[in-house]
Structure formats: structure tokens, C-alpha cells
Design a protein around this nucleic acid. Structure first.
Lengths: 335, 335
DNA sequence: GAAACGAATGTAAAGGATTACATCGGATAT
DNA sequence: ATATCCGATGTAATCCTTTACATTCGTTTC
């Protein structure tokens, strides 16, 4: 692998010219440019990124951490982010934190070490090691949050209106005639889970059904919904609203195990619209989030910060959509 | 952010000593070491990775590309890889190629550019741009394949014995009394799909049921199994063996849509044992792959290559396991 | 007591690209 | 014809760390 010096020698120019041909071609005469490019091609020269980023203090990389890479929800977000990053001349490094604060900090260190230019984290927790940076640089800190948000920290973020989405789900169930509704939330610490819960309670209260809401705290995983579902069935709910499709899957499984059927005996509604949701049995009614767009907008927000552009909107709210499939129907009582 | 020079000045030593304190502490007297470490801590000094990797020609990073990051199967492999990498002092960069050869090449360029020390690819296609490298460096090329393999290329790889696993699945169905069995494979180009098919045919032939096997070509995605399942049901099969759990999910969905029930009317068996497989309706019988271990071993293989250790086993075969759950049962005819 | 040794530390080159500044030569303006 | 300007290119400093080699000094050995 040749260096820029050898390329320069072969082309009979200085290293500065070679560098310019590659990064600011308009500054070089066409003659020289073609000659240099020919040498580059023949020799297979590729600039050394370490040297470049040492000199420029830019890594051209964005770190995207997800709390759980096995969650298909994040996969779509990642794709949207990668696309937007490519458009902006960055590449994305994906990190799986497994909800582990220690791992989060490890990844965050990549930012401190300048291994990456910016950080996007999907989840509710700003890595603790970045708090000082955030405090020092404020709006100029190259940190963006996706899906979740942490209002107190002032980190820009991209998400849907979770309360409204949740209200839509409850309205849908109430509209079908359900009066006793189970809700399986995310972990209490998650702000969006709290928003969703608030939205659900609001909607129920508006419908005069506050007491019909039976709330259980889950953790977004299928397993966590199993016990709650059994329990809610025992409470005679006719519908269950899960704050994730994975939990909805667990709920469906538990309903089947209880010898009941969805949607005949119990309706189920999920959240996220995973690619597989349409293949659930029955196909899942759920709230769709614009996953790829969330990824895309987080990157755009971050790139604006990196380029020193003062973005007008540091909190971006995208549209959600209620997707009605086969897992919700009128309760027996309303038929 | 201070540099090593400032740290050295503050501690009253040379930069060489600071560097040694950080990378070869045993070469430095305890006195000096403690003094330097104190300064490092107070100043918040973090070595600049670009400078380090420029000097050492090491990036301490491994690139792991997956053909489809939304496939939960790969998530577990990634986790295993990250753990093993951390143990060996490397970090993992995950790339999602979306089955796109162009994107594969883009990621492969990171290796050419020395942005990463090695490449692990999960999938059957060695990025074309790496063929020259592979040819030139042979066994010393820092490239490892996981899950799949490409025998012709001489790339070391880690996988299960797919033919044997597939035979186990067929044996299981035959043992239950099934005589007409549908098989939904992966894409024809995938070597492991071909292995699995060969194993299935072998097993069927041994049981004198070669003609009872009805083969359809899928692409591992749930959607691709839907039409095939409808078709196979029309062929009166009593069981369907899908080469991925996602396709099994599609099959279950199609079976339900056809007004039939699993396992009463049609048994279904999958492949991979995704975390969610146990929550399918009914819980899915499937072949478990040691996903995390595949990830771990690919990294270990790669690290051996990077350290110049001639690994004795360039093709690692791990154990699979048939997990029997509720989606397989005796066919009506055998009851 | 001189020689040899070894532990601890320092000096300085090297790694490869970018870019501010300098230079050169030809075109344009006066 | 001279002054000015501008486009194209070159020179060389700079980014920060690692490490081969050199140096220093106290200790051991004969």
C-alpha cells in the first residue's frame, strides 16, 4: 500500500497537490488532476485514515448506541441512520449496550477519545461520563437522543408524541366497546413509557373509564408480559395494551396458554409495528413509529451540530400511526 | 483535552515515560508511575487513538458485517463477538450490508484503509474487493466467516454441521409419523441452505421417503414462506420444515389463515431458535444454533490470525441442538 | 576499585496526511 | 512597460503517540 509521498513522486507533483486532487479537486488544473488520479488508480493508493484524522481532528464517524441490538425495533432505526449518515459523508458505528451503564460509558469514551465525531443514543440514559461534556458545551455538544428523551438534560432528540399515540390506542379499544383494559408498560424509569402511560390514563379518564384501566409494569421484553397477562386475564380485562410489540407477542402467547383466544376473548394492541407484527397470530394491531425516519432525523440533527449550524428544532416530533390488524375486536359483552 | 506532552511536563518526566506508564507499567518505577497516573487522572488525559494507530498500524477494531441487522439471529452472534473481542482488547464495529454487494464493498474498504484490523462477515459472500487481498495473503489475511462458509475461498469459518442438523429435523418429523413433508429452503446461492437441503434429502432418502419431500425455495424472510406454505398445504403435506425461524413464523401465519391449526393439522419446525421462538403460537420446535459461541469463536479465530498464530482449526464446527416445543406432533394419519 | 550490568529514564525519529503560507509565471490593467 | 493579480503548485510545519537507541547511575562481581 503506497503512501501519498510515493504517489506524489510517481505523478511528479508534491504531496500537497495529491492531497488537493483528492479533497479539493477544483483547485487543481485538469491536466494534473487526471495524471494524479491515474497514478492513484494504478497504485491502489488509499489515504490512511489514522493520519488524516490525526491531522484534521475529524473521524467522519458517528457512534450509534442501542440498548438492545436484538430488538428488531432498533434495526430499522439503525438503517435510517446509516442512510442519512452516508448522505452526509459519515459512517455509523453501532454499539450494543445491553442496558449496561458500564458498557454505555465505554462507548461514550469513544467520543471523549475523538474516535467518533458524535454520539446518538437510543434509550433514556445519557452515559454518565458525558454529563460534564454536556454541561460544558451545552447545545454544541455532539450528542443526540433518539426514540427516548431526557428533558432535563437538554439533549436534542427525535421521537413521536408518545402520549398521543397511547391515547389513540386506548381510544381505539374504547371505541370497540372495551371497558376493562390492561396496560403493560415499559420500565418506570423510561420517560416515554411514562408518557405513554399518562396518555393512556388521560384517554381513559376522558372516556370516564379511569377505573377500568389495570396497569402493570413490564420491561418491553416478551417474557415480562407473560405473567402480567395471566394476571390481567384473571382481572377479567377484555383488552391488553402493551407498550411494545414484543410484549404483545408474550401476551398472545399467554392468552393461548390460558385456553383463550385473541381477539375473541381478549384483544391485544402493541407498540412499534415490528416487521414481524403482521405475521403474529392474529396479525397485530399496533402503533407504528416512523423508525427509519427517527434514525434519519437524529443523524441530521447531529450533523447540523457538527457543522455548527444552529438547528431551530432541537426536539423533533414525528408522526405515529395506529395500524389496525386482527388482534383487536369488539369484546363479547358488546356484541 | 491535554496531550501526552503536557502530561509529561506536569509530571516532570518525558513523554516516553508517560507512554510507558500507560502501556507497559512494569517498566516504570512505582514512584514515577504513581506520579504520572495522578497527573493523568487529574488532567483527564486520554490518548489520541488516531495518533496511536498511525504509529502502531493497529486500530484495535474488528469489523463485523451482517447481511441483515433486523434479523434477531445475528444479534446474538454480535453479542458473542463483542464479548470475545473485549476479552482480546479489541472493539467491534458492526456493519449492516442489507445483502447489498455495494455496501459490502464499502465496508470491506475499511479493512483496506486499515480502519479496522480484521473483518468478520456473516453471510456467504466474500466482498469482491477483498478477493485480491485474500489471494495475496492467503491464510494470513485477517478475514473470517461466520455461520456460512465459502469453501472455495479458503476463508476460515465457524458454523454448525448444517446437513446433520437438518437431518435431525427430518428424523424428528419422520419419527412422529410424517410422510409428506414440505421444506422451505434459503436462497439457492447460500451454501448452508444447500447443506441443509442435502441433509434433509439424505435423511428422507434413508427413511425411504425421498418422494415425500416437497421442496420450495425461500429467502429466510417470513414473507417468503407465506405463499410456499399455502402451496404446500395444497399438496397435503402434514409438516413443514423451514430453514429459519422467521420463515416458520410466516408458515404459522399462513396455516392459520388457511383455517388450519398447528400442530394438529400441520407441524412446523424452524431453524435458529430465536429468542422469540418460544413465544410463537404454538411455541416453535426448532434447531438451536450456538449463536453467541459462533460469534465468540469467529473473533478468536481472527485474533489468532492477527497475532500470527497459526490456528490448527480453520474450519470450526459447533454443536447444534433440536429443541422440541409445541409446533410438532403426530400427523392425524398416525394417530 | 574497576568492570560489567541492569533498571529507569530521556532523546528524537517516524508514522502519513493536511494546509497555511510562499512562490512562480502568465494574464490583465493602467 | 510596469504594477497587480490570480491560478497552480510547492515547502514545510503540524497533528500526537510510540519506541529504538542512548544515557545515567547505582549495584554487583571479581
Amino acid at each position: 500500500m503506497p503512501t501519498i509521498i510515493e504517489v506524489a513522486a510517481l505523478a511528479g507533483v508534491s504531496t500537497a497537490t495529491v492531497s488537493r486532487v483528492l479533497s479539493r479537486p477544483e483547485q487543481v488544473s485538469e491536466d494534473t488532476r487526471l495524471r494524479v488520479l491515474a497514478v492513484v488508480r494504478e497504485s491502489g493508493y488509499v489515504p490512511n485514515v489514522a493520519a488524516r484524522s490525526l491531522r484534521t481532528l475529524r473521524a467522519a464517524k458517528i457512534l450509534l448506541t442501542v440498548p438492545d441490538i436484538s430488538n428488531a425495533f432498533f434495526a430499522s432505526v439503525i438503517r435510517g441512520a446509516e442512510e442519512a449518515a452516508r448522505d452526509a459523508g459519515y459512517s455509523v458505528v453501532v454499539g450494543d449496550t445491553r442496558h449496561d451503564p458500564y458498557v454505555e460509558d465505554q462507548y461514550a469514551d469513544m467520543l471523549s477519545r475523538r474516535e467518533v465525531d458524535g454520539l446518538i443514543f437510543l434509550g433514556h440514559r445519557l452515559p454518565t461520563s458525558l454529563a460534564p461534556l454536556m454541561a460544558r458545551k451545552g447545545a454544541a455538544a455532539p450528542i443526540v437522543n433518539g426514540c427516548e428523551y431526557s428533558s432535563d438534560l437538554g439533549v436534542p432528540s427525535v421521537h413521536i408524541d408518545n402520549a398521543a399515540a397511547s391515547a389513540d390506542a386506548i381510544d381505539h379499544l374504547v371505541g370497540l366497546g372495551h371497558r376493562r383494559i390492561g396496560v403493560v408498560t415499559g420500565p418506570e424509569i423510561s420517560p416515554i413509557s411514562r408518557d405513554r402511560l399518562a396518555g393512556a390514563i388521560d384517554a381513559a379518564t376522558r372516556a370516564n373509564l379511569r377505573d377500568g384501566l389495570h396497569i402493570r409494569v413490564g420491561d418491553y421484553s416478551a417474557g415480562s408480559a407473560i405473567d402480567h397477562t395471566r394476571d390481567l386475564i384473571a382481572q377479567d380485562v377484555t383488552a391488553i395494551f402493551c407498550f411494545s410489540d414484543e410484549m404483545a407477542m408474550g401476551a398472545l402467547s399467554a392468552i393461548g396458554d390460558a385456553g383463550l383466544s385473541c381477539p375473541k376473548d381478549v384483544s391485544v394492541i402493541g407498540f412499534d409495528d415490528l416487521p414481524l407484527a403482521r405475521y403474529f397470530q392474529p396479525p397485530l394491531t399496533t402503533i407504528a413509529q416512523p423508525k427509519a425516519m427517527i434514525g434519519r432525523r437524529t443523524v441530521e440533527l447531529l450533523v447540523d451540530i457538527l457543522h455548527g449550524i444552529d438547528s431551530p428544532s432541537r426536539q423533533v416530533t414525528l408522526d405515529h400511526e395506529l395500524i389496525v390488524r386482527g388482534s383487536t375486536a369488539q369484546p363479547v359483552s358488546a356484541r
